[in-house]
Simulated assay, not measured.
Amino acid sequence: MERRYEGRHDAVHPHLDPPAEVLHDRRWAKDLRSAVQCAAVILVLLLLIDWGADSLTAVRGALWAGLAVLLFLILFPPRVTAGEGWLASRGLLRKRLVRTDLLVSVRCVDGVSQRLVLRDVPGGRVEISLQVLMNNPDLWHRLDEDAHRSATGGSLTCGQTALLRLSERIDRENARTVFKVSGLD
Rank of each mutant, 00 (worst) to 15 (best):
M1G: 12
E2H: 11
R3S: 05
R3D: 02
R3Q: 07
R4W: 02
E6Q: 09
E6D: 14
G7H: 11
R8P: 00
R8M: 13
L16P: 01
D17I: 02
D17Y: 05
P18W: 04
P19I: 06
E21M: 04
L23H: 04
H24D: 06
D25E: 11
R26Y: 01
R27E: 05
R27H: 06
A29N: 00
K30A: 09
D31Q: 06
D31T: 00
L32S: 06
S34K: 09
C38S: 11
A39N: 09
I42D: 07
I42V: 15
V44M: 15
L45Y: 07
L45Q: 11
L46C: 15
L46E: 14
L47G: 07
W51N: 10
G52C: 06
A53P: 00
T57P: 05
A58V: 07
R60C: 03
G61T: 07
A65D: 03
A68Y: 08
L70S: 03
L71D: 06
F72K: 08
L75T: 03
F76Y: 15
R79Q: 09
G85K: 05
L87K: 09
R90K: 15
R90L: 10
R94L: 14
K95N: 04
L97A: 02
L97C: 03
V98Q: 03
R99K: 07
R99N: 00
L102I: 00
L102G: 02
L103Y: 10
V104A: 08
S105N: 08
D110S: 11
G111L: 10
G111Q: 04
S113C: 06
S113W: 09
Q114S: 14
Q114T: 13
R115Q: 15
R115F: 02
V117D: 14
L118N: 12
L118S: 04
R119I: 00
D120G: 08
G123L: 11
V126Y: 10
S129N: 04
Q131V: 13
V132R: 02
V132M: 05
N136T: 01
L139P: 02
H141Y: 03
R142P: 00
D146R: 06
A147D: 05
A147M: 04
A147S: 13
A151N: 09
T152L: 10
T152S: 10
G153K: 12
G153I: 06
G154R: 10
S155F: 12
G159T: 10
T161V: 09
A162N: 13
A162W: 01
L163D: 08
R165A: 12
E168P: 01
D171R: 15
D171L: 12
D171E: 10
D171Q: 12
A175P: 00
R176H: 14
R176L: 15
R176W: 13
R176I: 07
T177W: 13
V178S: 14
S182I: 01
L184C: 03
D185M: 07
D185V: 09
